[in-house]
Simulated assay, not measured.
Amino acid sequence: MSSADTALPGLDLDRLADWLAAHRPELAQGPLRGELIAGGKSNLTYAITSGTTSFVLRRPPLGHVLATAHDMTREHRVISALADTDVPVPDTYALCEDTEIIGAPFYLMELVAGTPYRRARELEALGPERTAAISAGLIDTLAALHSVDPVTVGLGDFGRPEGFLERQVRRWKKQLDASYSRELPAATELHELLAKSVPPQSASRIVHGDYRLDNVLVDASDRVAAVLDWEMATLGDPLTDIGLLLVYQRMGTHHIPGVTDVAAAQGFLGESEMLDRYAHRAGLDLTHIGFYVALASFKLAVIAEGIYYRFIHGQTVGAGFDTMGDMVDPLLRAGIAALQQDQE
């Protein structure tokens, strides 16, 4: 299969080959072949090979995109900045901001060997000891990220950490208002509780924004080989990452369709073990972890309501979208409970 007879959505391999010939000729020693390995509303990811070399290309999704959510320059910048730290990331090869090449900005990075575990059954096939090691590595890697001084790696201006938590509360309320289609009294209650319960902010660190096991690659030795999907990365309160991870895992243990359920696998570290391990390695105070769990619950409820809103208005289609609305109220109530427990 040559570049001339390969049709990939969002990527013209012939035009890419011409660009590589001028900018990174060592990556295009033969006809290019490619495969879309991740697509949808997130950034598109392609595995590409010339027969002698292989790499990954990332570009924004097709159609209308939010510049802030699909900024290739920011993704490329944060991955490149972390290259010499203890955070495992792919090597970056090139950034192209010229939209005339493939129709959108893109960047190239190393194709890292590894598995993005998503299902408990995948981990159960490895056994509880290996599962425990993988979940410990997941936490250790997050702690390593949150131990990086942004200024030291050239990311001191990567975001606006001042007032980060307050802006998050406002942002997700604004998103919910834009998807309003039904009464959600629990949303009003949770938002009010969050707005008046914002804790003192942790030291500014690099926030991944969507950290979970299926957004990292695990190698054959059960170590995290690379952290992927940096499209939500910014500077802010690092505890928002751990709060979101906990909510993902709580949802997974209830086997909610479409949500990774890895935390249900035998051997996967429990919440208290994960929090103790994280606090020890990151050196951060988890006194108000309930707030961060509540904020993450609010965020995911708003995202689910937005998908449900677009589905019922015929603006999007997808497996499971018809039931997304069923997730919203349980998430909101879980957030209220987490915040109330935090205040006891």
Rank of each mutant, 00 (worst) to 15 (best):
S54D: 15
F55T: 03
V56R: 03
V56G: 12
R59K: 14
P60F: 04
P60Q: 07
P60I: 02
P61A: 03
V65I: 15
L66I: 00
T68I: 00
T68K: 15
H70E: 04
H70V: 00
M72G: 04
R74Q: 13
R74N: 11
R77A: 14
D84Y: 05
T85F: 10
D86T: 12
V87P: 02
P88K: 01
V89N: 00
P90W: 12
D91M: 12
T92D: 05
T92V: 15
A94R: 10
A94Y: 09
C96P: 04
D98V: 07
T99M: 05
E100D: 15
I102M: 02
I102A: 07
G103C: 05
A104N: 08
P105Y: 06
P105Q: 10
Y107L: 05
E110G: 08
V112R: 01
A113Q: 13
T115L: 02
T115Y: 11
T115N: 10
P116I: 05
Y117D: 05
R121D: 14
E122C: 09
L123I: 13
E124F: 12
E124W: 13
E124T: 13
G127I: 02
P128L: 06
R130I: 04
T131S: 08
T131I: 06
A132R: 09
A132F: 02
I134Y: 01
S135N: 06
S135F: 01
G137M: 11
G137D: 03
I139F: 02
I139K: 01
D140F: 03
T141E: 02
L142A: 01
A144E: 06
A144T: 06
A144G: 11
L145P: 05
S147I: 08
S147W: 08
V148Q: 10
V151H: 11
V153C: 07
G154T: 10
L155D: 03
D157Y: 06
F158V: 00
G159L: 04
P161I: 08
L165E: 07
E166N: 12
E166D: 13
E166C: 05
R167N: 06
Q168K: 07
V169M: 11
R170E: 14
R171H: 15
